[in-house]
Simulated scan of single mutants.
Amino acid sequence: MNNLAATLFAQGDLAGAQEMQDGVLEVHRRVLGPEHPDTLTSQNNLAGTLFAQGDLAGARALEEGVLEACRRVLGPDHPDTLTSQNNLAHTLFRMNEPAQALALMIEVVPGRTKVLGPRHPDTQDAAAFLAKLQAVVAVQPQS
């Protein structure tokens, strides 16, 4: 089901992907439990689809829950935790909250560097996003 959801997403059928991801998440919650790593990944995947559909509030709510659970269950330096934190930062940026996104990314880059290495594509993408956030926050008027 998850693979079909990914295929639907790649084909641009976001509604179909969301429907399939809702089903995957329901099964994972029932069979594996709400904090199993696969359940958290399913929530993260659904949040990504909501993000792509423009439902930023829905994506954020899921991402915040996933990040909290990942930190508790997997630890702050686990690659899935860092991915969850990265995803939430992207959502916050799109919601015009760059300072909050920056606070998250300041932790993601060193975490990914430590766990994945400085040349890993995820580390490099995070570093580029961090630099973008730093530039945006630097030019924002202070309140």
Rank of each mutant, 00 (worst) to 15 (best):
Leu8Ala: 12
Leu8Ile: 01
Leu8His: 03
Phe9Asp: 02
Phe9Cys: 14
Ala10Arg: 08
Ala10Glu: 11
Gln11Leu: 10
Gly12Gln: 11
Gly12Leu: 00
Gly12Arg: 07
Asp13Glu: 08
Leu14Cys: 05
Ala15Gln: 12
Gly16Asp: 13
Gly16Gln: 06
Gly16Ser: 10
Gly16Asn: 04
Ala17Pro: 01
Glu19Thr: 09
Met20Ser: 12
Gln21Leu: 11
Gly23Ala: 06
Val24Pro: 01
Leu25Pro: 05
Leu25Trp: 08
Leu25Ala: 05
Glu26Tyr: 14
Glu26Cys: 14
Glu26Gln: 15
Val27Cys: 14
Arg29His: 00
Arg29Ile: 10
Arg29Lys: 09
Arg29Cys: 07
Arg30Phe: 01
Val31Thr: 04
Val31Ala: 06
Val31Lys: 04
Gly33Leu: 04
Pro34His: 06
Pro34Lys: 01
Pro34Trp: 07
Glu35Phe: 06
Glu35Lys: 07
His36Ile: 01
Pro37Tyr: 10
Asp38Ala: 03
Thr39Gln: 03
Leu40Asn: 02
Thr41Ile: 14
Thr41Arg: 08
Ser42Val: 09
Ser42Tyr: 05
Ser42Cys: 11
Gln43Gly: 13
Gln43Ala: 14
Gln43His: 15
Asn45Asp: 09
Gly48Lys: 09
Gly48Gln: 10
Leu50Pro: 05
Phe51Ser: 01
Phe51Leu: 13
Ala52Gln: 14
Gly54Asp: 08
Arg60Cys: 06
Arg60Pro: 01
Arg60Thr: 00
Ala61Ile: 15
Ala61His: 13
Leu62Pro: 08
Leu62Gly: 09
Gly65Ile: 08
Val66Lys: 04
Leu67Glu: 07
Glu68Cys: 08
Ala69Ile: 09
Ala69Gly: 09
Cys70Ile: 13
Arg71Val: 01
Arg72Thr: 06
Val73Tyr: 01
Val73Ile: 00
Leu74His: 03
Gly75Gln: 08
Pro76Cys: 13
Asp77His: 14
Asp77Met: 12
Asp80Cys: 03
Asp80Ile: 04
Asp80Phe: 02
Thr81Asn: 09
Leu82His: 10
Leu82Ser: 08
